[in-house]
């Protein structure tokens, strides 16, 4: 192979990976969502002080009301919960996926990535999974499923090592989530604020088997 052909092939191979559909929109959405607190806040605070003087008391009252409305559960804002929320927002486009993933497909992927499987049961057999992907949470490979919940999509993430000592509840304005130690691993369940998450935790608890 001559030099020119080699360089051409090298270009083709190195540039072959194509971004998944929807990635561009998701990256553009970063600028629309309120994930950028630092820079715009600095600009606005300097130029628009009176706006904040008016808005802050209102925001504080709303936060108080939201906090009271939320089942009086002690929510914790930890680096892990922030990472989970960031991850879910980054993949928000998958929340309304209409795909259907069978339990066999889920188990095949889980076996390869986190060495675990979900047993077939009355609950898991009717579980409507519409997204399944390995992702990176808490500095390790994790399995991320999105299933249909009572009030909307529910994210179920399984991490093959224990990253918390006890159940942790966390939330933001849109989502509520739990992080639960499960055997030698960790389960994260996250859904809309009104979603009853306990039943998904119980379902995974009774059917999840770590294979190592």
């Amino acid at each position: 192979m001559n030099e020119q052909d080699f360089e051409k092939l090298l270009q083709q191979v190195l540039k072959a990976p194509t971004p998944p559909a929807g990635l561009q929109n998701s990256l553009l959405a970063v600028a629309s969502e309120d994930v950028n607190q630092a820079a715009p806040a600095r600009t606005m605070a300097a130029a628009n002080d009176s706006f904040w003087r008016r808005a802050l008391p209102v925001a504080a009252c709303m936060a108080l009301l939201l906090g009271l409305a939320y089942r009086f559960q002690p929510a914790q804002d930890t680096p892990l919960s922030q990472e989970i929320l960031r991850h879910v927002y980054a993949e928000a486009r998958f929340l309304n996926s209409t795909d259907h993933v069978s339990l066999a497909e889920v188990n095949s992927r889980m076996g390869k990535t986190i060495k675990a499987r979900l047993e077939s049961s009355r609950d898991t057999d009717v579980m409507d999974v519409h997204f399944s992907k390995d992702c990176w949470i808490a500095k390790q490979v994790a399995m991320h499923l999105i299933i249909s919940g009572d009030t909307g999509p529910v994210s179920v993430m399984m991490i093959p090592s224990q990253v918390v000592q006890q159940e942790t509840v966390f939330n933001d304005a849109r989502f509520t989530g739990t992080i639960t130690p499960m055997g030698s691993g960790t389960l994260i369940v996250l859904g809309n604020r009104a979603e009853p998450l306990g039943k998904y935790t119980a379902m995974v608890q009774s059917t999840l088997h770590w294979q190592y």
């Binding site: 190195l14 970063v30 992907k133 992702c135």
Partner: peptide, 28 residues
């Protein structure tokens, strides 16, 4: 995204890494 693919050698990780990169870029 392409560079992330070669760096991580894993597409889902590359996608996450691309997201994180642009999120950081927007903030800074």
């Amino acid at each position: 995204f392409r560079y992330a693919c070669w760096l991580t050698r894993h597409r889902p990780l590359a996608e996450d890494l691309t997201q994180e990169t642009f999120m950081r870029a927007w903030r800074a």
